[in-house]
Amino acid sequence: MSDTAAGPDGPRAAPAVPARLAPAEARERFRAGLRMPTAGFCAGYAQANLIALPRDLAFDFLLFAQRNPKPCPVLDVTGPGEVSAPVFAGDLRSDLPAYRVYEHGRLVAETADATAYWRPDLVAFLIGCSFTFESPMQEAGIPLRHIDTGRNVAMYTTDRPCRPAGRLSGPLVVSMRPVPAERVADAVRITARYPSVHGAPVHVGDPAGLGIADLGTPDFGDPVEVRPGEVPVFWACGVTPQAAVAASAPEFALAHAPGHMAITDARDHDYQVP
């Protein structure tokens, strides 16, 4: 999704080198209207998925996340109505590039500013995002085509059910990155050191093993070409809570638009294990 730049130097203009922005600078741009996927932004800082649910559903979601830690690693949780968190010093209502609003499991709006939809009973969960470990992958020389081509990462709903919890159930969602065959072991090793942002892949190779019929038609994000000599590698994805919302149909939910993440103030190495 492209942004609607007001001018080459204005706050809405896409940054020439988004990796060099500080999180506060990126959030300021999003608040001013920049709307684009955040892959490649703010190198060295963790990104997060957002799901905000009414207070009476918060325990069910905490239990859902505990039972499904690969797609739902919780980085932080707000109190009801709070709009910032220790790992995110900005405003959760306005400082992401795009949001989705759900009512009874249906997507009813997508907006660049969720302030008008925010409710005092909402509990916001920040869920680890695989964009966090992309900088270490790039530093190791593993190409990431969605970043190189300025596209959103490809995401797919699988046929693997998550463990249900209370009123929540739904399928696992995954993100896919094509990796040169000789670098797959490196990609697994690097990402396994970041369990709080999805960790090692859940599947390598034939997408049919996840019930994915066509890599060219992702359920979220943009299609990304898998070239000869490359292997599709799949990681658990933080869009999984939105799939659970669609399947379980709670009265209300608010989330990030897939690929349009909350850029936190936490460093990516904070989530690295030896």
Rank of each mutant, 00 (worst) to 15 (best):
E225M: 13
A58E: 02
L57G: 01
V179I: 15
L75Y: 15
P164Y: 02
A22G: 00
A13W: 15
R177E: 02
N152G: 12
L107Q: 12
Y99E: 08
A246Q: 14
A192H: 04
A114D: 07
D95I: 03
H269Q: 12
H198L: 07
A26D: 01
L92H: 08
P218T: 03
Y117W: 12
F30Y: 13
A26F: 00
P136S: 01
I190C: 08
T191G: 05
T111V: 15
D56G: 00
D148K: 08
S130Y: 11
A185G: 10
A22Y: 01
F41A: 04
D148V: 02
P258C: 08
P171F: 08
L50G: 12
V197M: 03
A6D: 13
Y99T: 03
D121A: 09
A98P: 02
V123N: 05
F220H: 15
R106Q: 15
P69M: 12
I127A: 12
N49M: 00
G238P: 01
F61Y: 15
D270W: 03
V77I: 15
F125N: 05
D76M: 06
Y117M: 04
A39L: 04
P161S: 12
H256T: 06
A200E: 04
L53V: 05
F41D: 12
D3Y: 05
A114W: 14
A14P: 10
Y156P: 04
A187H: 06
D95E: 13
V233R: 07
V245Q: 00
A262S: 02
A247F: 08
Y45D: 10
Y271H: 13
V224L: 06
A181L: 01
N68R: 02
R31G: 07
A6E: 13
R93K: 08
G105C: 12
T217F: 06
T264N: 03
V173A: 00
L215R: 04
P171K: 08
E139K: 10
T111G: 14
A46P: 04
L122M: 11
G44N: 01
P86C: 12
H256A: 09
R193C: 14
R29H: 15
E103W: 01
F125I: 01
A32C: 03
F133R: 06
A200I: 06
A32S: 14
A13R: 15
T132Y: 10
D91P: 11
V83N: 08
T217M: 09
P71C: 13
A19S: 13
V273D: 10
L107N: 07
D265T: 03
G40D: 10
A19L: 11
D148R: 14
E230K: 03
P201M: 09
A243F: 11
S130M: 13
S248C: 02
R100H: 06
V77W: 09
Y194I: 11
R183L: 14
T240F: 03
P136L: 07
F125Q: 10
H198R: 04
S84K: 07
V153P: 00
R20I: 02
G40F: 08
P178G: 08
D268E: 14
S169D: 11
G10R: 13
V188Q: 03
G141N: 13
Y271V: 02
A13T: 13
C42I: 09
N68L: 14
A213E: 06
Y99C: 12
A244H: 01
T158G: 08
I263M: 04
H198C: 09
A181I: 03
P258K: 00
M176F: 04
I147H: 11
